[in-house]
């Protein structure tokens, strides 16, 4: 029995590289977990006092929930608007690059899209407030005049154009590059074999794309959208620049009274915050952290639901 135990603990000889490399990559993986845990700990520890704060200490609201709700609503609204703009456009651009454009045009267009990602977000903010917002005012006037029966366009239209819709649109432009890149890569990976199967059955180019490229790329499209959503949820300075905030919960997308977003609110309020106010701001950050987590879990669930048919097997 003893000899067995000895044999059991004896390890076959392994080269130095084979021992060092797994340790290195394991450490790299662990860094992610440690960082995430660190952020979560900080947010929880610093945010907890806000949950039990006296009503008098919370600016403009009776409770923390009442304080954070309009911000959370604004965050989600702006991000959803961003995705509504970005998803169709980026799928279109990615498809054009991967399946329609001549090769040379495709690669330069790909570079341009990637370049868009390198523009700092304050530039997008300035572009939004000085260029885009004034030019959207006539559109908002028209919407308020003709479609005011839809709650989204109830009006009165903002005269500056600094609305949640403008913010959502700018966010959409900002998340376009990452989503386009992911979609493009995934579309390019569609097996040639499947595309030819569709073409050989007499599919037109568009039918081939619907039969093979989209189903194959579905999980990639969802992951791309979720990464984009993650960026939109957390985007700070562009929103802080563009949006005129009055912390209301409203369906109206084109008025001058808009909900703020959590990240922008922290950036705007933090310089003048002290004591419990800092804890309150950090607690809103915790809420954003949790929401981002939930969104990602949801995305995983969507991707995993029909894994059997995903083409990965």
């Amino acid at each position: 029995m003893t000899s067995h135990a000895v044999e059991g603990t004896h390890r076959p000889p392994r080269s130095v590289g084979d021992r060092v490399f797994p340790a290195l990559v394991t450490a790299a993986g662990a860094v992610i977990l440690v960082t995430l845990a660190g952020v979560a700990l900080f947010l929880t520890y610093e945010g907890l006092p806000a949950l039990t704060a006296k009503a008098a200490d919370i600016p403009g609201a009776d409770s923390f929930a009442a304080y954070v709700w309009p911000l959370l609503y604004g965050t989600l609204l702006a991000s959803v608007l961003a995705l509504l703009f970005a998803v169709p456009v980026s799928i279109g651009v990615a498809l054009f690059i991967s399946h329609f454009a001549p090769r040379r045009l495709a690669s330069s267009l790909g570079y341009l899209v990637d370049l868009l990602a390198a523009v700092p977000s304050i530039i997008y903010g300035l572009w939004g407030i000085f260029f885009l917002a004034p030019r959207l005012v006539p559109l908002y006037d028209w919407l308020a005049g003709h479609l005011s029966w839809i709650p989204f366009f109830a009006g009165p239209a903002s005269v500056t154009g600094r609305t949640i819709l403008t913010a959502g649109f700018v966010l959409g432009v900002m998340v376009l590059p990452i989503m386009t890149s992911i979609c493009r890569e995934i579309f390019l990976q569609t097996p040639r074999l499947h595309e030819e199967a569709a073409l050989a059955l007499g599919a037109t180019r568009w039918e081939m794309i619907r039969m093979t490229v989209f189903p194959y790329g579905r999980s990639g499209i969802v992951s791309g959208a979720m990464l984009a959503l993650g960026r939109a949820l957390g985007e700070t300075i562009a929103v802080a620049t563009i949006l005129s905030v009055s912390n209301v919960v409203s369906l109206n997308l084109i008025s001058s009274t808009n909900p703020g977003t959590i990240a922008a609110n922290i950036a705007l309020k933090f310089p003048e915050a002290s004591g419990i106010e800092v804890n309150i701001l950090i607690a809103t950050g915790l809420v954003l952290f949790i929401v981002t987590f939930l969104v990602n879990f949801l995305a995983r669930a969507i991707v995993g639901r029909r894994a059997e048919f995903s083409g990965a097997n």
Partner: peptide, 22 residues
């Protein structure tokens, strides 16, 4: 050519059923 391929079927070297279809 799309019409042609509807009338002339093809079977490939490696089996290629659509993985997302039953």
């Amino acid at each position: 050519p799309v019409e042609v391929r509807r009338q002339i079927g093809m079977v490939f070297q490696r089996p290629n059923p659509f993985p997302t279809m039953s």
